[in-house]
């Protein structure tokens, strides 16, 4: 994996700040924050993502959010019957979960293993916790790539992965997808272990990271500003000022 694939767009923020982002987005499905707060949180995460992760992915998530989350809200008055239920459910799901998913996406796409290892070590966690979590974040995009190549291999052999096909033969389809995925996970993990160990990642061994992990101005703004914003929105919602 080249360092280039992790190159930041315009702004570098600390991995710990990114984790705080996910936690803050998590309050949306832990407390009743209301619609205004949901949209506000999305725009904060969207703005951060725009600078940290790049314009392309931010634009993608923005289009998805407005089509699946905001559009049904506007159209809701003109649709009747069963479709109303469906669209309300869809739009609340999108409104609540998109910020958290996008924040997780920022972590997995813009953080190297060594950065997250040094950040987690600065939080004084034990190495038995640090290494699996760092690898976890590194591995999610890899799994997505593997899944795409498995799908194209299945297509080549004429096995459809459509919803109907999966429902008709669940066990067989599961075998077709799961076994290659497990095979490649086992192999890639072995290779990753060899590569990381040759770069000096080891349990209980201190290493000197090339890229320095520390809080900068942007980090402090996010760390202070985001929770304060959530608290204000929550108290406004409790007082009934906003919906």
């Amino acid at each position: 994996m080249s360092a280039n694939s992790y190159r930041q767009a315009y702004l570098y923020i600390d991995p710990r700040t990114k984790m705080l982002l996910v936690l803050c987005c998590g309050t949306l499905f832990n407390a009743q924050m209301g619609m205004v707060a949901e949209i506000a949180v999305f725009f904060v995460v969207f703005t951060i993502g725009l600078f940290v992760h790049g314009v392309k992915s931010a634009a993608k998530i923005f289009i998805f959010y407005s089509l699946a989350g905001l559009l049904p809200l506007i159209l809701l008055h003109s649709i009747e019957g069963f479709m109303t239920i469906f669209f309300t459910a869809l739009s609340t799901l999108v409104l609540i979960f998109t910020p958290a998913v996008y924040a997780l996406n920022i972590i997995t796409k813009t953080t190297t293993v060594s950065d997250s290892v040094s950040a987690l070590r600065k939080m004084h966690l034990s190495d038995s916790v640090v290494i699996p979590i760092a690898v976890f974040f590194r591995f999610v995009p890899t799994l997505k790539e593997e899944w795409q190549s498995i799908r194209s291999a299945m297509k080549l052999r004429g096995i459809g992965t459509s919803f109907f096909n999966v429902v008709r033969r669940p066990i067989l389809n599961m075998e077709y997808v799961l076994i290659p995925l497990m095979m490649s996970t086992a192999n890639i993990a072995e290779e990753l272990a060899a590569a990381s160990m040759s770069r000096g990642l080891a349990k209980g061994v201190n290493r000197v990271p090339i890229s320095e992990v520390k809080f900068r101005v942007a980090d402090y703004i996010i760390i202070v500003g985001f929770p304060v914003m959530l608290a204000i929105l929550y108290s406004l919602k409790q007082k009934g000022v906003i919906v």
Binding site: V135, F136, T142, L143, L178, T185, A189, L192, A193
Partner: peptide, 21 residues
């Protein structure tokens, strides 16, 4: 006892397990 290699494997399988479930 878990060594570095086991921890990395654990992280990878953690990702697979969570994504599948």
């Amino acid at each position: 006892k878990m060594k570095t290699k086991d921890l990395i494997l654990a992280g990878a399988f953690l990702a697979l397990y969570c994504v599948v479930s």
